[in-house]
Design a binder for these strands. Structure first.
Length: 510
RNA sequence: GGUCCCUUCGUCUAACGGUUAGGACACAAGAUUUUCAUUCUUGAAAUAGGGGUUCGAUUCCCCUAGGGACUACCA
């Protein structure tokens, strides 16, 4: 099913790195667009110069690229409704703010920050919260309360002012059918006169957002639940402009794994997981925040995990490629309630994607890790085989090292606990015999054949099979872990095995 | 405080008003095994509470409680 009129946008603010909640919002926009053959747009909402963070814009773009989310229109690729950066669209906003002034849906307000603080303080003293609304605006300094001449004088004098939306004086129920939540109702009497246009000449989010969504022919506004309270304002703005409004879909929030509240910037490194797709170094504080990419997550698994946080396919399938997500996605199956993020499940997804990869691909990814450990002269087919042996045991490529280091370097020490448990009794006397046997062995160096040989010796010497095996393993890998022992023996090769046995015999003192 | 949203195992979630309330992660036990893992089997684990409506509520309505978001000339 394609509907070329579907146009959605992801509209982040470049005030810092995009966090995983933002990525999920972008993802759901993307899935919806692709599902309906629509257009996916990136718009940068940089109307607040004071909060602009250098590098944030590139970070956002790099993150989404890493995730495999391709935009059709945006600041990089352009498009028919550009520019796509709000700071470059100033002229539009003033023009539309004026339209609202002329229609009586907005007014000038000259209150200084001090005036507002005073009003807030006064309300607080009476145990109330100040709200700039139909009930209070008469006592404030604005074009609704002041005489026309005075307003004209103030405007002419260059006194700073803002433009506020004029909430209807008569209470009215604003109903909107949210794609995820169904009918949501607000009462205008509870709403305040939000600033639409700031004294610095820039629009606020509300104005810029509505104007741009209209100008860019956005059909569906898909955003986080934190925007739900401003939906009625936006609906009223569309009405005041006389424009068709888009459909709205407010996504549930991603909550902290433990404790209260939504996932925030600092939770990750505090609780031991990334909240950002890519590592981010804060230019102001030089603080570094970890990223999924740098932590070893595959973008496919990150996306898969995110998709299932708040959405489900209605089947028991959990592993989805991007294409499968596109086919399966719909708002009908997006949950209303916030979803607690589970870092353990994220790891599980990565494990699933890791074991699906071919040994060859994993070996390729593992090579740089090996090189970083100073392992050179690598034989790729050998690495491929080793990786295939242990990939089921890890969730990340970097963990492969912990499982395989003994293939690449002689164990530096022997796990004392294992030594104490295994290297005792008749073992110290027996191991030299095993070493001699292998030294003299001239049959094929294959796991099965060697196993038969060693087993015969164990039987002849009346040793305990398990005990010998564990000690043998200790000598080769330095501990009590790793894949099938004789496979290790085969891969290590005769010379190395004998050397390690002799080293262990010499060095382990029980 | 006010407004709005939400509420099924610890977590993510499934269940045309009729199911022994299902699955996954995590957890536990057992099996397999030369170790550690993997794998397999099994287990424990939930409809927030109270009222309705109904022959029958996880499901519909109301109240209470709890959680969340918003409440800036930030987005």
């Amino acid at each position: 099913m394609t509907d070329s009129t579907v146009r959605v946008r992801f509209a982040p603010s470049p005030t810092g790195p995009l966090h995983m909640g933002g990525v999920r919002t972008a993802l759901f926009n993307y899935l919806f667009a692709r599902r309906h053959g629509g257009t996916f747009i990136l718009r940068i909402e940089d109307t607040d110069q004071s909060r602009y963070v250098p590098g944030a814009e590139n970070y956002i773009i790099d993150s989404l690229k890493w995730c495999g989310l391709q935009f059709d229109e945006g600041i990089e690729q352009g498009g028919p409704y550009g520019p796509y950066r709000q700071s470059e669209r100033r002229e539009y906003y003033r023009q539309y703010a004026d339209q609202l002034i002329n229609s009586g849906d907005a007014y000038f307000a000259f209150d200084t920050p001090e005036d507002l603080n005073e009003a807030r303080g006064k309300a607080e003293a009476e145990g109330k919260a100040f709200s700039y609304d139909a009930g209070t605006r008469g006592s404030m300094k604005n074009s609704l309360s002041l005489p026309v001449q005075e307003v004209a004088r103030l405007l002419g004098s260059g006194k700073p002012y803002v433009i506020r939306f004029r909430m209807p004086e008569i209470d009215e129920a604003v109903e909107e059918d949210d794609l995820i939540r169904g009918k949501v109702t607000f009462h205008t009497a509870e709403l305040d006169d939000k600033v639409l246009f700031k004294s610095d000449g820039m629009p606020t989010y509300h104005l810029a957002n509505v104007v741009d969504d209209h100008l860019m022919h956005i059909s569906h506004v898909i955003r986080g639940e934190e925007w739900l309270p401003s939906m009625p304002l936006h609906v009223l703005l569309y009405r005041a402009f006389g424009w068709d409004k888009p459909r709205f879909a407010h996504l549930p929030l991603i909550l902290k794994p433990q404790g209260k509240g939504k996932l925030s910037k600092r939770d990750g490194d505090k609780m031991g997981f990334p909240v950002f797709p890519l590592q981010w170094k804060d230019p102001a504080s030089n603080e570094t925040f970890s990223g999924y990419r740098e932590d070893g997550y595959f973008p496919e698994s990150f996306i898969n995990m995110l998709a299932l946080l708040g959405w489900n396919p209605g089947t028991e399938q959990e592993l989805f490629s991007m294409e499968e997500l596109v086919q399966a996605f719909g708002f009908e199956r997006v949950n209303k309630s916030g979803a607690r993020f589970d870092p353990e499940k994220a790891k599980w997804f990565n494990h699933q994607y890791l074991i699906q990869k071919s040994d060859e691909e994993l070996a390729g990814l593992f090579m740089p890790v090996l090189e970083s450990k100073g392992i050179t002269h690598l034989d790729l087919p050998r690495v491929v085989r080793i990786v295939g042996l242990v990939k089921e045991r890890v969730s990340f490529v970097k963990e492969l090292w912990e499982q395989t280091h003994f293939f690449f370097q002689v164990p530096e020490n022997y796990d004392p606990k294992v030594v104490k448990k295994r290297w005792k009794g008749e073992i110290p006397a027996f191991m030299p015999k095993a070493s001699a046997l292998l030294q003299a062995y001239d049959g094929p160096w294959e796991a099965e054949a060697i196993k038969t040989e060693v087993s015969d010796l164990i039987e002849k010497e009346a040793q305990n099979f398990g005990g010998v095996m564990n000690s043998f393993r200790l000598a080769l890998v330095g501990g009590s872990f790793g894949p099938d022992l004789f496979t290790i023996v085969e891969i290590l090769g005769k010379e190395e095995v004998v050397t390690r046995l002799n080293k262990a015999i010499k060095e382990i003192v029980s």
